[in-house]
Amino acid sequence: MYNQENCRFAKTHEWAFAEGDVAVVGISNHAQEEISDIVFVDLPKVGQKTEVGKNCCVVESVKSASEIYAPVSGEIVEVNEALNADPALVNREPHGNGWLFKIKMANPAELDNLLDFNAYQATIAK
């Protein structure tokens, strides 16, 4: 759905996929593998303002709580309610139905500061 080749990535493992001036945000396949079985996603509130690098969501496994940082600035306009009932969606489809939230971007140019898929792959290969 949000094909990883077409996503931009933060070094902290979030991806952003632009749909007009709205960025769909999720975590990378690598991140969901590292976290392993996700048991709960503490989603942000719709209407909440956020900035690049600011934590706005928490993904929990049994033994960990991982902060999710906003890859772009803007306002949260939608969250993935389906994760409340089925947080494992993030494990199964990190680039599909396991997206986390959508940000109405304040400055779409921020996307250019993020890594493309190949550059991101290179950072995790290290």
Binding site: K63, S64, A65
Partner: peptide, 10 residues
């Protein structure tokens, strides 16, 4: 259960 709320993890 729900241990990810607690100090030893968070």
């Amino acid at each position: 259960t729900l241990q990810a709320r607690e100090q030893h993890i968070r």
